[in-house]
């Protein structure tokens, strides 16, 4: 690997990431940066390798090649590809949500948010020994965890449903809860896999507000996969476009929208025709996305 990259203002540096499954190269030599305090969107047609990138970043897959460096505000660095799966969250503080929502369906909304605070609570319970003895320090820690959960419940508008099983919530609320649960792990980078999928326009708007709140009020940068271009174009500061596992564009929403290669990837036109098409449908891209 090359020298340690200059991480000034960058929270995650993806360098030469390659992931192969047998003979299939899902992601090939991908490099991009996620800047601190930004909302970065990772877009691309279906099967472009976006979720594979996420799985590599969050430790579910070990990349075939490449380096994933995560920098905290205090300057400490973590090489994500070397961490065990759970340590990506616990030590590197990267949290994520899933394309198919993965809540603890049989546990209540509140319990879901408490499970997310497992590490600090576990410490407070003295690896369960103090907790078993009913120590006051643990009870205080638990009360604080519940307070924090309540804060998020208020934020995602689920206060009244705290004691309901998560599986009972409507779809949009489950999406919000999954984001709140990820935020309860106190991440520096939040990875959202299609957070707007299946949401109606009103819920989509609420999601935008929630994501902005996360970016502005917390020390958390956001990386998201999204097909809904209204979300992408409206809230992201930076867009990376993938096609067949390769980066084809990288820039501000405006730049990406105007990039002929992006239009070609989405509309499936030959390179020669791109120039013509560009003129005609330049803005239409935002409405023609394939749904997940």
């Amino acid at each position: 690997m090359g020298p340690v990259p200059d991480m000034d203002g960058v929270v995650l540096a993806v360098e030469h990431l390659t992931m192969r499954f047998g003979g299939l190269t899902a992601v090939g030599d991908l490099s991009f940066d996620v800047r601190r305090g930004d909302i970065t969107a990772l877009i691309g047609p279906n099967g472009a390798g976006k979720t594979t990138v996420f799985n590599c970043i969050t430790g579910f897959y070990k990349p075939t090649e490449g380096r994933l460096t995560l920098a905290h505000a205090d300057g400490s660095r973590h090489l994500l590809e070397r961490l065990p799966n759970h340590a990506v969250n616990r030590t590197a503080r990267v949290a994520r949500t899933f394309q198919n929502i993965r809540l603890f369906q049989g546990m209540t909304v509140l319990e879901n948010l408490l499970v997310a605070q497992h590490a600090p609570l576990m410490r407070a319970s003295g690896l369960s020994v103090l907790g078993l003895l009913g120590a006051g320090s643990y009870r205080r820690a638990e009360a604080a965890a519940i307070e924090r959960a309540k804060e998020w419940l208020g934020r995602i508008d689920l206060m009244g449903r705290a004691d309901d099983p998560a599986g009972d919530l409507p779809y949009g609320a489950q999406r919000r809860l999954e984001i709140a649960r990820a935020m309860c792990t106190d991440p520096v980078l939040l990875c959202l896999d299609e957070p707007a999928a299946g949401l109606n326009p009103r819920e989509s708007g609420e999601l935008n507000a929630l994501l902005r709140h996360i970016r502005d009020a917390h020390d958390t940068s956001v990386l998201l996969i999204e097909h809904d271009m209204s979300v992408v174009m409206e809230i992201s500061d930076h867009v990376v476009v993938l096609d067949y596992g390769v980066k084809i564009a990288d820039g501000t929403p405006g730049e990406v929208r105007a990039d002929p290669r992006v239009i070609a990837a989405y509309l499936g036109v030959e390179d020669e025709e791109v120039a013509e098409v560009d003129a005609e449908v330049g803005l239409a891209v935002t409405h023609l996305e394939p749904q997940a």
């Binding site: 969050t58 430790g59 579910f60 065990p84 799966n85 759970h86 340590a87 990506v88 969250n89 616990r90 949290a95 994520r96 899933f98 993965r102 809540l103 603890f104 369906q105 049989g106 546990m107 319990e111 408490l114 499970v115 997310a116 605070q117 497992h118 590490a119 609570l121 576990m122 319970s125 690896l127 369960s128 907790g131 078993l132 643990y138 649960r181 990820a182 792990t185």
Partner: peptide
């Protein structure tokens, strides 16, 4: 002991594990 542990983080982690192991790992649970 079981009843008490259920209400501690370890017990909740057990149940979360039963519900969804992948989600557990994404939340930093070993």
């Amino acid at each position: 002991v079981t009843l008490r542990l259920r209400r501690l983080p370890i017990g909740r982690a057990w149940e979360a594990l039963r519900e969804d192991e992948i989600a557990c790992r994404s939340l930093g649970i070993n």
